[in-house]
Nucleic acid binder design. Structure first.
Length: 425
RNA sequence: GCCCUUGUAGCUCAGCUGGUAGAGCAAUUGAUUUGUAAUCAAUAGGUCCGCGGUUCGACUCCGUGCGGGGGCACCA
């Protein structure tokens, strides 16, 4: 019988203590624990690897989608929506059925047809591209979708929000000419890094994978595609690794990797050049010489999986989100029943200007409420008592400080609604 | 999927060698009306993950299924 033994060893008690402390800190940041404590989401046996989003978690999710949609609109993407289930025949034609069929969910209709519950959005996007005759003047054409995909991942691979069986991709496919690959790759890379910065990630690890032995497409185009991607990687000036020969059979790729609380790496964003699928699914455009050509397709996802990204985001901030993405930003606390009416009025005004606020009218004292809402990581607590009512103001207590700051209510509304968006906007 | 491990109240956990469960917090109700991190009291809350087996008797022992955790493999 073979027995595997794990262990760690340390030069001194001090090193060991530091190690244990680090583990303890990491456990506090664990998104599964915080997800429960902060009432963001849960999982159930009935659907392993699929998220039940609660109100606050879903609000966070929606905020990220809204933010991304805005960034993508500004970057020239056309948002579409494609079917959740598509005939198996399409997946056979694309080549996915043969390679990943084992990991696909399928659904049989009463008339005995087999439909695949989509594990990716690309075949759907090619169908949209194929509608109508496309000219070289239409390129680059950037088609995006917040597409929910299902993949039957091995049970042992599941891990909270970081590895699930149903997830939402901020997916897009850029149809372009070979000459446009370089510029488009640079634009995508810059967009990803800019967005990650807005969300507090400065240390992104890039992994670049080039041509494998078994591949499609001619070497001239591979040369172009690889150079374009590598240039994009270099331009980022970030740490990167080269995984020789580990690209997809259809093209080279970059992975944008973020790290969780205990140091595990997770691929979030990705950028891949595809020299195969457009041809297999009959995509074409009329070039300036009047001939039909097959476009190159770039697959890209910025967050990658919304679910995974949120998991990492929770761990990165230890649940203490920046004001603009916190799902519940403000809790208004009256000192006693006497001030309930004022607190309600304050709460309403805050919600009216687009922040999310709740008022805590429960029968508990101030100390108790401050403790509760601090533990649930609400960025701002507004205390309302006699002083505030008399001066039409609020007393602000920010998360993780015990300083108090009194502010006239209208000034508060003005100041904080201005802070209610990402720094780059 | 594989190896190891684990499953008791909403949460965190007790429950000795088998005799059908208990605490703290949360919840509910009442009292208190509180000025910056836990006011007091009462009440309620459980198919001990599911299914089989052993036994007079199973939360406890055995088998099996499902889920969780850590690793491995996988990750379009």
């Amino acid at each position: 019988m073979l027995q595997r033994i794990y262990g760690t060893s340390w030069a001194s008690q001090k090193d060991l203590d530091e190690y244990l402390k680090r583990i303890e800190e990491a456990e506090k940041r664990d998104h599964r624990k915080l997800g429960r404590e902060m009432d963001l989401f849960h999982f159930r046996e009935e659907s392993p690897g699929s998220v039940f989003w609660h109100e606050k978690g879903w609000k966070l999710f929606q905020k990220l989608v809204t933010y991304m949609r805005d960034r993508q609109n500004k970057a020239g993407y056309k948002e579409v929506n494609t079917p959740e289930i598509l005939d198996r025949a399409l997946w056979e034609k694309s080549g996915h059925w043969e390679k990943y069929g084992e990991h696909m969910y399928t659904s049989q209709t009463p008339d005995k047809k087999i439909f695949v519950i989509k594990p990716m959005n690309c075949p759907g996007h090619v169908q949209v591209f194929n509608q109508g005759l496309k000219s070289y003047r239409d390129l680059p054409l950037r088609i995006s979708e917040f597409g929910k995909v299902h993949r039957y991942e091995p049970s042992g691979a599941l891990h909270g929000l970081l590895r699930v069986r149903a997830f939402t991709q901020d997916d897009a496919h850029i149809f372009c000419t070979e000459d446009q690959i370089t510029e488009e790759c640079l634009i995508v890379t810059n967009l990803i890094l800019d967005i990650y910065k807005d969300l507090g990630f400065e240390n992104v690890i890039l992994k670049y994978s080039d041509r494998p032995d078994l591949r499609v497409g001619d070497d001239g185009v591979w040369d172009k595609a690889e150079k374009a991607l590598l240039d994009a990687v270099k331009a980022s000036k970030l740490e990167y690794t080269i995984n020789k020969g580990e690209g997809a059979f259809y093209g080279p790729k970059i992975e944008f990797v973020l790290r969780d609380a205990i140091g595990r790496d997770w691929q979030c964003g990705t950028l891949q050049v595809d020299l195969n699928l457009p041809g297999r699914l009959d995509a074409s455009f009329v070039d300036n010489d009047g001939t039909k050509k097959v476009p190159v397709m770039l697959h890209r996802a910025l967050f990658g999986s919304l679910e995974r990204f949120i998991g990492i985001l929770i761990e990165n901030y230890a649940g203490k989100f920046p004001f603009w993405i916190a799902p519940l930003q403000v809790v208004v606390i009256p000192i006693s029943e006497e001030f309930d009416a004022y607190a309600k009025e304050v709460n309403e005004k805050i919600n009216d200007v687009g922040m999310s606020s709740e008022v805590d009218l429960k029968n508990h004292n101030l100390n108790y409420k401050i403790r509760e809402h601090s533990l649930s990581k609400i960025p701002l607590l507004l205390i309302c008592g006699k002083k505030e009512v008399d001066s039409n103001s609020v007393t602000i207590r920010r998360l993780d400080t015990n300083k108090q700051e009194n502010m006239e209510l209208n000034l508060f509304l003005e100041k904080f609604s201005a802070l209610n968006k990402a720094s780059s906007n």
